[in-house]
């Protein structure tokens, strides 16, 4: 389990996060929503171990985040950034081979194929990464991130942090990615924290939602609790109305 208590982060004398508390259970998908500048990326950085100076507590599987060494941390959580710049013509297979793990060569090859197939990019295995489209690159990186976790999750609960991981994807692939991620989370008891801008994707695939505004938690709870029109309107300072999707989950429309 991931526990965050009264997390406060200051960067260059500016308080980016005030007293943020949350929990992330193994197997659940938690979406973090908020307007630009709300502190979503800083929250993700703090949870990933990139921001080392913070007040409050972050505990991963019961242990203080700062007491982990990078290697052990990488066995328990993986991070998918918004954009990865790679200027050298690595093959897709070589990108996935960068994952640090103890697998034998033949076994690794099979795992790489499987990881790519999950996101519908197995046919790109021999292509040069730099020649792929933005969406293809994003799916290859997702495959890499899941591969990192699936080699070690047997031991402890795993965690997956996603930063707008569907920003370059078309509609069909956005939904495919979230289906795959949710299945993966359930099956392997992995807690997923996903920073998102698309309210309806969040509504459809999340178990719980955290709303951030100006570095403070506006609401934290189940989709049904959090997706109230007045609350969302207040968060964005923009009127929205919430109706119901034919399949039951909340559907957000600009009012």
């Amino acid at each position: 389990m991931l526990e965050v208590e009264n997390l406060t982060v200051e960067l260059e004398h500016k308080t980016i996060l005030h007293d943020v508390s949350l929990t992330l259970e193994p197997g659940e998908v938690l979406s973090v929503l908020g307007p630009n500048g709300a502190g979503k990326s800083t929250l993700l950085k703090a949870l990933s171990g990139d921001v080392r100076h913070y007040h409050g507590d972050i505990r991963l599987n019961g242990r203080d985040l700062r007491s982990y060494d990078v290697r052990t941390l990488a066995e328990q959580r993986a991070v998918m950034p918004q954009k990865i710049q790679l200027d050298f013509p690595f093959l897709v297979e070589e990108v996935l081979q960068m994952v640090l793990e103890p697998l034998a060569k033949e076994k690794l090859h099979a795992q790489i194929r499987y990881a790519l197939a999950r996101f519908d990019v197995e046919h790109l295995i021999g292509r040069s990464f730099v020649t792929l489209s933005g969406g293809e690159q994003q799916r290859v990186q997702l495959a890499r991130v899941l591969l990192q976790l699936s080699t070690s999750i047997a031991r402890e609960d795993g965690f997956l942090f996603l930063d707008e991981c569907t920003s370059s994807l078309d509609l069909a692939h956005q939904h495919q990615v979230f289906q795959v991620v949710r299945d993966f989370a359930r099956r392997n008891r992995v807690g997923v924290l996903s920073v998102l801008h698309d309210l309806n994707l969040a509504s459809q695939y999340s178990d719980r939602v955290l709303l951030l505004k100006q570095g403070r938690v506006l609401a934290f709870g189940s989709v049904q609790q959090v997706f109230a029109a007045d609350q969302l309107s207040r968060m964005y300072d923009f009127p929205v109305s919430v109706s119901v999707h034919p399949h039951g989950w909340p559907l957000v429309i600009p009012a």
Binding site: S48, G49, D50, V70, R71, L73, A74, E75, R77, A78, V79, P81, I84, Q85, L86, D87, F88, F90, E94, V95, Q97, M98, V99, L100, Q148
Partner: peptide, 17 residues
């Protein structure tokens, strides 16, 4: 190799920078 994807990415993958 991992470092070419950026410092934080390779740290997230468990490499000692």
């Amino acid at each position: 190799n991992a470092f070419l994807m950026g410092e934080s990415v390779s740290r997230h993958m468990g490499y000692n920078l």
